[in-house]
Each structure stands twice: as structure tokens, then as C-alpha cells.
Amino acid sequence: MNEAYDSGALWQKSRLFLNHAMDVEEFRTFDERALWASLALELLAKAALARVSPLLVAAPNEEGSNLLVAAGLTQGKGGFNSVTASTLFTRCAKAFRPFDVAEAKGISRARNDYLHGGAAVFSTIPEEAWWPRYWAQAAILINAQDRDIDELVGPDRVAIVEDYLARNKRNIEHRVEMLIARAAQRLKQYRDGVLPAKLFSEWNKTFDHGVSLSYSAIEKCPACGEEGEVEGDIVESSDVQYAQVNDDEWDVWANTTVLSDLFSCSTCKLVLDGSDLLAVAGISMEFVVVEDVGDMIEPEYGND
């Protein structure tokens, strides 16, 4: 297979780039190390997807040359065209839960600004906060390839990565605790009539968390105990059910299991965006919706 589409080759190159990012023998600024790490993250995403199928990383064109080479049907020695980093991360978010597409795209965007724009620094996020967030995403892509962290960074650096992962977990726990406490506090102030005027005006506006996903279900709010809403886009499974109404009629529906991505509560205005936050808050990681099977059956196209 062409190395450009080979999962093993992509993995080895990500190892090389992360070695540049973590090497302490040669001095590199945080900006330079973050740059190498961001390149490695994109390669890890490609490797994880290409391991499933090289077609997931090849950019389609009219002639189909990239796809044909990726599929191993032809041999190509020309330029390699892959899908964009944004597309890679979006696909990884759907395929390898709980990969955070927003976090990954933020890293990629910072890299592009640093390389191609006038940005003097790679990220405004302090280094001690940047690495835990980075490794939280990289670890998911490592696991997606059935590999261990030491295979990527070497046994001498595993403790460093595990420390970053532990810090990220604590940061998420603290963030969830803060969001829940703040939502409960604002609701109490509102009910007690002591909410500041500016916040009172904002509170009375129609609640809009800014995102509307394809599926939703009722879920108890961890801040106020009232009914909130959990939402998601990714269908995990769909189970078609039948029930006979009479001799000539049947009811047909599907119980569709959806992965949770967002929780919101119109009572206390709490919003938890991302499966990592939902897990810590005790929100169900999946929910079931009942769908009309007629919406799921493909129409006949009359090709007889």
C-alpha cells in the first residue's frame, strides 16, 4: 500500500513528531513543541481512520485517483491529497468516542495561525494547561488503534503523559462542579428576587443554548432536579419493533439509541456541552428515541 495512506506509516511518523515535541535533550520553546505535537495529532487521526479504511483519509476528486490508490486498486507516485484536518477530526469524533472535535480543531486552528498568520505565539493557553487538554484527545486516538501510550512516546515518558491525563480529568471535574454550582446559585437568586438587574434581564430572555442536535430526550437536571434535555447526533443502533393491531394492520416503529453530546436545562439555564462533561455530571451517555419507521425506509427508485 502507498505509505501516504498506510496506518502503520502514519503512526510511525506521529511518533517521530512527538519525539520532537517531548525531547528534552535539545532545547525547544513551547511554541515549537506545541507545533510538532499538533502535527502529530493530525497524523494520529489519519492513522486511526486509515486503520479502519484508507478511504477515510483520501480526498476524493473527479478522477477518483486518490481513492483508487488508497483502495490499492492502482499505484500512484504523484502528490498525496488527504482530507482536511477539520474533516479528519469530525470523522474521529463520530467514530472514536469521546474524541472532542472542538478541542482538536482548536489545536489545528492555532497551528495554522502560527504557521501562516501573524500570531507571535502558538497558543494563549498556558503550557501547563495546554498539554493536559492535548493528551486527552491524543490518548483517545491511541486507544482507537488498540495501542498503548508507551508505544507512542516510549516507556520513559509514560508517567509524564499519565500525569497530564490525570490533570485533565481533575480539570473536567472542577469545571462540571463549577457549572452546576453556578446554575443552582443563579436559580436561587432568581427565586429569592435578589438577582442583579442585568442578570435578571438576561435570565428572562428565551433560553437558547445555541445548539440544536438531531435527537433529544428528557433528563433530570443535576443542578436543580427539574426536567432538562439531553441531545445527540450520533445513532448507535436502531431496533425495529412490530405490534399487530388487527388481522390486516401492524404498528411498526424503531427504538433508536443515540449517544449523548449535550445537556441543557431551561429552568436553571445549565448547559453541559461534551460527553466528557456529561459523564462527570452523571448524565446518561446514551438515550432512546422512538422513530417512525417510515422515515427510515429508503424509497424504491423504480429501477426494475
Rank of each mutant, 00 (worst) to 15 (best):
A138G: 09
A138W: 06
A138Y: 02
I140K: 04
I140Q: 02
I140D: 02
L141S: 04
L141D: 00
I142C: 05
N143R: 13
N143V: 06
N143K: 13
N143S: 13
N143T: 09
A144F: 08
Q145D: 09
Q145R: 11
Q145V: 05
D146T: 11
R147M: 02
R147P: 04
R147S: 01
D148M: 09
D148L: 10
I149P: 03
D150M: 11
D150I: 11
D150L: 12
D150W: 10
L152E: 07
L152Y: 05
V153F: 06
V153R: 10
V153C: 08
G154I: 06
P155W: 01
D156R: 14
D156C: 09
R157M: 03
V158C: 01
A159E: 06
I160V: 08
I160F: 09
I160Q: 07
V161G: 04
V161R: 01
E162F: 01
D163V: 08
D163K: 10
Y164E: 11
L165E: 03
L165N: 04
A166K: 12
R167K: 13
R167G: 12
N168V: 04
N168Y: 08
N168Q: 11
K169L: 02
R170K: 10
E173C: 06
H174I: 10
H174C: 10
H174A: 15
R175N: 07
E177W: 05
E177T: 04
E177H: 00
E177K: 04
M178N: 08
L179C: 01
I180W: 05
A181H: 08
A181C: 07
R182W: 11
R182G: 09
A183K: 02
Q185M: 09
Q185W: 08
Q185Y: 10
R186G: 08
L187A: 03
L187H: 04
K188L: 07
Q189C: 00
Q189W: 02
Y190W: 09
R191E: 12
R191I: 05
R191S: 04
D192I: 06
G193I: 15
G193T: 14
G193M: 12
V194M: 07
L195T: 07
P196E: 15
P196F: 15
P196Q: 15
K198V: 14
K198P: 03
L199H: 12
F200G: 12
E202V: 06
W203N: 13
W203F: 11
N204E: 15
K205C: 14
T206V: 14
T206N: 13
T206H: 13
F207D: 12
F207E: 13
H209D: 15
G210H: 14
G210V: 14
G210N: 14
S212T: 15
S214N: 12
S214K: 13
Y215V: 14
Y215S: 08
I218C: 10
I218R: 11
I218D: 13
I218M: 11
E219L: 08
E219W: 07
C221F: 12
A223I: 02
A223C: 06
C224W: 02
G225E: 05
G225R: 03
E226W: 00
E226Q: 01
E227M: 05
E227I: 04
G228C: 00
G228Q: 03
E229N: 00
E229D: 01
E229S: 01
V230I: 09
V230G: 01
V230H: 00
E231D: 08
G232A: 05
